[in-house]
C-alpha cells in the first residue's frame, strides 16, 4: 500500500492507504473527520468540499494518494483557536443552514468563492454555487451569508 504524507488541519499525517481510496473516505474513515460528507456519487453535490492547498476541491473526485504532500483543510480545521471563521459566523447569523448536511461543503466552497471573487455580487455568488446543492434553504440565506461574510472578511476594501 502506498504511504502518503500530508498536513490535515495543520497536523502532519503519515499513513499507508489503498491506492483506490478516495480522499473523502480517507478523511472520514481513516482520520475520523466526519464533518466532510458524501451526498452523491457523481461529483455533483459538493457536500465533500475541502481545501487542498487553499483551493476548494471535491474530495470525492480525487484519490487520497493524489493529495500526497498537500495541505488539506476540512470544516473541522476552519475555526482557529476556538474562534469561528467569519464564514461560519455568517452562516449562523443568517440562518444559512437547516439540516446541516450540505453545510460543511457549502462553507468550504464559500470561503474559496470569497477568496477568488471578493466583490462578488448576488448573481455571481449564485453562479459560483453551481457545484453545491442544498435541499433545505432555497439558497436564499446562503447567498446572504456569503455576501455578508465577504464584507466581514474585509474583502470589499
Amino acid at each position: 500500500m502506498p504511504k502518503i504524507e500530508m498536513r490535515v488541519n495543520g497536523k502532519p499525517i503519515s499513513v499507508e492507504t489503498e491506492a483506490e481510496t478516495l480522499l473523502v473516505h480517507f478523511l472520514r474513515d481513516r482520520l475520523g473527520l466526519t464533518g466532510t460528507h458524501v451526498g452523491c456519487d457523481t461529483g455533483q453535490c459538493g457536500a465533500c468540499t475541502v481545501h487542498l492547498n487553499g483551493e476548494a476541491v471535491k474530495s470525492c473526485t480525487m484519490f487520497a494518494v493524489q493529495a500526497h504532500g498537500a495541505e488539506i483543510t476540512t470544516i473541522e480545521g476552519l475555526a482557529k483557536n476556538g474562534k469561528l471563521h467569519p464564514m461560519q459566523e455568517a452562516f449562523r447569523e443568517h440562518h444559512a443552514l437547516q439540516c446541516g448536511f450540505c453545510t460543511p461543503g457549502m462553507i468550504m466552497a464559500a470561503v474559496d468563492i470569497v477568496r477568488r471573487k471578493p466583490n462578488a455580487d448576488e448573481k455571481t455568488i449564485r453562479q459560483e454555487l453551481e457545484g453545491n446543492i442544498c435541499r433545505c434553504t432555497g439558497y436564499h440565506n446562503i447567498v446572504k451569508a456569503i455576501a455578508s461574510a465577504a464584507a466581514g472578511m474585509g474583502a470589499r476594501s
Binding site: T34, G35, V38, E76, L78, E93, L97, G100, P104
Partner: peptide, 18 residues
C-alpha cells in the same frame, strides 16, 4: 439564532453514517 448550528458549522454533527 439556532442552538444547533454550532455543531453543523464546525463539522461536529453526528449523522448516521458518521
Amino acid at each position: 439564532k439556532r442552538k444547533e448550528d454550532r455543531r453543523f458549522i464546525t463539522g461536529t454533527g453526528h449523522y448516521t453514517d458518521d
